[in-house]
Amino acid sequence: MSKKNICVIYGGKSAEHDVSILTAQNVINAVDTSKYIIDIIYITNDGDWIKSNQSINEKINDIEQLKLKCDELTPISKLLEVSNDGEAYSAVFPLLHGPNGEDGTIQGLFEVLDIPYVGNGVLAASSSMDKLVMKHLFAHRGLPQLPYVSFLKSEYEKYEHNIVELIQNKLEYPVFVKPANLGSSVGISKCTNKEELISGIDEAFQFDRKLVIEQGVDAREIEVAVLGNDYPETTLPGEVVKDVQFYDYKSKYKDGKVQLQIPADIDEETATTLRNMAIEAFKATDCSGLVRADFFLTEDNTIYINETNAMPGFTQYSMYPLLWENMNLSYTELITKLIELAIERYDNKKNIKYKID
């Protein structure tokens, strides 16, 4: 059987640029090279697209190898037109986190260029990226959530006193201040008083024009991985066990101050409820490919959905792949499955009529 050509796209004009490169290194090194030929495209911090003129034939030992440089840029459509072998790509694999990567923008580009791609479509990616839109969709599906307040930067600049008062009247400290459209805990603050709240708001507005302020809760953080298209499957839940009060960007990716317990130590009934809710969340945002659904579980077994992540951390040590490894699906097999799901979705979409005879 001849090998299929795929293209891994990483980097991006995002605060999560470095996380994306690390993810790309892990994925590239784990792709089944008996099935796939791998091309790579690096998107710089400035948004320039650079494609290696050679396919990847050996392991990437240093992420600096993935920070490609080029004197003359090529139009994006030309980069994606054919592989280095001159063949059309069977699928592209976007490993981009944050804005311009998992928010539906690049997915829209692939749709326009008619290229199969791994992961969620435009609607699912954009609605999963925007925490406020996501909350509205979850509410429509009847999924339980913690109280929250949301507002725009322009509103805050005009009505700062009123908004701070609204937050303090509706929510109880601690609260979490979050940019509406970022992941990997970038720009998020845990606030225990008014001074910290104002400081956290100022910090978060550096990363987005819209914020979500969420009620804090004393609870365990439970995550479920979802995989599939129209008939998604789930893993047993896993738990994020922290040595820090707040699971922020630094503790996630730099300090190693978190541990993952897989599977989580919870009863079978609660695990089943969490898995069913993960499917409901997947369907609420019309997801495909992959999603990680994140929940809070209180001491009395009350469950709140926190969010879904349409492009979860995907290094071999991240929760999503490890949850599937616990279900006897290896990292390499998971990557293969995601590529197959991308091709399946693309082929199914080809059956849709776009003109009337």
Score class of each variant (00 low, 15 high):
3 K>P: 00
4 K>N: 14
8 V>C: 05
16 E>L: 09
17 H>W: 07
20 S>I: 07
22 L>Y: 11
25 Q>W: 07
27 V>A: 11
33 T>K: 15
40 I>C: 13
47 G>P: 07
58 E>F: 10
59 K>L: 14
59 K>P: 04
65 Q>N: 14
68 L>P: 10
70 C>S: 15
71 D>Q: 12
81 E>R: 10
86 G>I: 14
90 S>M: 09
91 A>P: 10
100 N>G: 02
103 D>F: 12
112 V>K: 09
116 P>H: 06
121 G>N: 06
123 L>S: 11
146 L>M: 12
152 L>G: 05
152 L>C: 08
159 Y>H: 14
167 I>Q: 02
170 K>F: 05
171 L>C: 04
173 Y>V: 01
174 P>T: 05
175 V>W: 06
186 V>Y: 02
188 I>N: 09
189 S>Y: 11
194 K>I: 13
206 Q>R: 14
207 F>Y: 15
211 L>T: 07
211 L>Y: 04
220 R>G: 07
227 L>M: 00
236 L>S: 11
244 V>R: 00
246 F>Y: 13
247 Y>Q: 00
249 Y>M: 05
250 K>A: 15
254 K>E: 15
264 A>K: 04
267 D>W: 05
278 A>F: 06
278 A>G: 07
290 L>H: 01
293 A>S: 10
295 F>M: 03
313 G>C: 00
315 T>V: 05
321 P>I: 04
329 L>Q: 07
332 T>F: 01
333 E>A: 08
338 L>K: 01
339 I>K: 07
342 A>I: 11
343 I>W: 06
347 D>Q: 14
351 N>E: 14
353 K>V: 03
353 K>Q: 12
356 I>L: 13
